[in-house]
Write a protein that binds this DNA or RNA. Structure first.
Lengths: 211, 211
DNA sequence: ATCGACTTTATTGTATACCAAATTCCTTCG
DNA sequence: CGAAGGAATTTGGTATACAATAAAGTCGAT
C-alpha cells in the first residue's frame, strides 16, 4: 500500500492496541480521517484491512466498533495459529536453506541473551520472537499461508501473553526455538511441526492461566 | 456490503471465473467501472476483496492482474483447506443442533438427487455442495475460521474440480456427505474430522489427476 | 411521567471531478 | 536498430456532494 493508507492503518491500529480506543468504541470514518490527517478514502482502505484482521467488527448496519474477544475466541485463535504455524514449520523444515537457518540462529541468540539478562529484556524478547516466527513463515514459502497467519497472529494477544511470562517460561520459549532450529537443521518436518505445536500451545496456557 | 460494491464484486469475479478474463489479464479500475456500470469507488472496494481472496495479484507497481495458480499453489491451498475444514467439521460435530442437522440432510438429499439423475445435474450439485459446506462452517461457530475459509475456498478450483468429476466421483462425494451427517448426528468430532479430511483430499486428487 | 411516533442528525455508500506520482507506451532522433 | 524523451495510462489520494439508512433526540398523547 501507499503512504496515506499505511499511515491510517498504523494510526488506527495503534489506537486500538494502546487502549485509547477500548473494545466497543465506535470508529467513524470522518473522525479517523481527522485524527490521521488524511481523507476518508485511505481511512476506508485501512478499516477494511483492520476488519479483515478482526481488529474491528461491524454492526448489523455497517457501523464499525473496536472488536472485543471472548475467552473462547482467543482459545480458538490459538488453536488455528497452532495448526497453521505447525504446518508452516513442517514446510520450512523441508525447504529452509543454510542462510535462513543461520539467520534463525542469530535471532535466537539475541532472544536468549535478552532472557538471561539480569533483568529480562521483554521488549527485545518480543521483537526477536516476532522476527523468529516471521522467518519461519517466510521459509515455508507459501504466500497464502503467510497471508492467513498474518491475520491470525494478533499482536495484542502476543503482547499480553509475553507480559505474563515468568523468566522460566521465557527460557522455555528460547529452548523451544533452539529445538526448532535443530529440527530445521535436520530438515525433519515432523519434528519441527511437533515442537511448534507444543510451543504455541504453551503460549496459550501461559495466557490462559493468568487471565 | 452494499449494492454497487457487491455488484462490482460479483461482476469482476464472474469475469475471472468464466474465463473472459484469463490469468494474466490486466484489470483497470476505469475499465471495470465501465463494465459494471458503477464508479471507481465501489470497484476499488471489490478489487481489494478479490485481492485478499487471491483472485487478483498486483504487479510491483500496483497494477492488477488476474491471478494464475501454479500446481504447487493449488496443492497447498487444498492442504490448508483440508486442515481448516476438518477442524471446522470437528467443531461442528460438537456444536450442531437438530435443526442444522436437518438442514444438512435436506441439502444432501437435493445433492444426491442431482447426482443420480439420468444426466447428472452438475450445477445443482455445485450449489448444494457449496451450501452443505457453508452450513458446516456456520455450525462450527467460529467467525475467525469462517473468515479464513471464505478466503480459501476458491470457487475457480472448486468449479474446475467438479467439472472433472465422473459420476462415480460425484456419488462418492454424496456418500461422504452422508457419512459426515452420521458423524454429526453422533456428535463424534474425530469421525467428522477424519471424513472431512478424506473428502477434501479426494477432491484434490480428482483435480490433480486430470490437470 | 412514560411510551410511542415523528423529526433531526450522524454515518456510510456512492458518484464525480480533479490532481500527483509513477509507470508504460509510443514516437522520434541519432 | 536502439535509445532518449515525451505522451498516455493507471493508481493513490483529496474534496465535495448526495442518497439511504440507522441512531438519537424531541414532542405529544394518554
Amino acid at each position: 500500500m501507499s503512504r496515506a493508507s499505511d499511515q491510517a492503518y498504523a494510526n488506527i491500529r495503534s489506537l486500538i492496541l494502546s487502549g485509547d480506543a477500548p473494545p466497543g468504541t465506535q470508529l467513524t470514518e470522518a473522525q479517523l480521517a481527522d485524527i490521521c490527517g488524511v481523507s476518508r478514502t485511505p481511512v476506508r482502505d485501512a478499516l477494511r484491512r483492520l476488519e479483515a484482521e478482526l481488529y474491528i467488527v461491524r454492526s448489523d448496519s455497517q457501523r464499525m466498533f473496536v472488536a472485543d474477544w471472548s475467552r473462547e475466541e482467543v482459545g480458538e485463535m490459538f488453536t488455528l495459529r497452532g495448526m497453521l504455524e505447525s504446518h508452516a514449520a513442517a514446510r520450512a523444515a523441508a525447504r529452509i536453506d543454510a542462510q535462513s537457518l543461520e539467520n534463525l540462529v542469530e535471532c535466537n541468540k539475541l532472544l536468549t541473551a535478552a532472557v538471561e539478562a539480569a533483568v529480562p529484556d521483554v521488549a527485545t524478547f518480543l521483537a526477536e520472537n516476532r522476527r523468529f516466527h516471521e522467518q519461519i513463515i517466510a521459509a515455508a514459502q507459501s504466500p497464502r499461508l503467510a497471508t492467513i497467519l498474518a491475520s491470525i497472529v494478533e499482536q495484542p494477544v502476543v503482547r499480553r501473553t509475553a507480559a505474563r511470562y515468568t523468566r522460566a517460561e521465557l527460557a522455555r520459549s528460547a529452548h523451544d526455538h533452539a529445538e526448532l532450529i535443530e529440527a530445521f537443521a535436520a530438515h525433519d518436518s515432523d519434528w519441527a511441526e511437533a515442537v511448534m505445536a507444543g510451543h504455541i500451545r504453551r503460549a496459550f496456557h501461559a495466557f490462559s492461566a493468568a487471565k
